[in-house]
């Protein structure tokens, strides 16, 4: 698990951050309204801002509880930005789009003069 992540991270560094490929993981626990809402919100944000250069992996901890420790998951739902570096975590149902964008580092330079 960790070694996979490291390899991914190394890959990202080699490819360079300009590639701008987003590798995202969404941790949920069962099909709750919150997790459904989070996934929908995430898809919406990605389609709007990262069309074509993102990848979402949904991990259901109800089915794979052993994966919770790897990414230090406590809160559900948690969105982990594995790429680009650095690793970022956003918790909650992602209903606050502004915070999601800040959290994913998607348009900070536009906002700041």
């Amino acid at each position: 698990m960790t070694s996979d992540a490291e390899r991914l991270d190394e890959g990202a560094q080699e490819a360079g951050e300009d590639a701008g490929h987003y590798y995202l993981r969404l941790y949920v626990a069962g099909h709750t309204t919150k997790s459904t809402l989070a996934l929908n919100n995430l898809k919406r944000v990605c389609e709007t801002h990262l069309a074509g250069r993102y990848e979402i992996e949904v991990i259901d901890l109800r089915e794979n509880p052993q994966l919770a420790a790897g990414d230090q998951i406590l809160a559900i739902p948690t969105l982990v930005r594995r790429l680009p570096q650095p690793l970022k975590r956003i918790i909650g149902d992602l209903s606050n789009t502004e915070k999601v964008l800040v959290g994913l580092d998607i348009r900070p330079k536009v906002a700041c003069p």
Binding site: L61, I73, A75, I91, G92, V102
Partner: peptide
Amino acid sequence: EIEEAGEYDLEGLFVRLG
């Protein structure tokens, strides 16, 4: 490392402990 964006709970902790 944590940004909060919306409602959440600590189910992850329960999952890990369980």
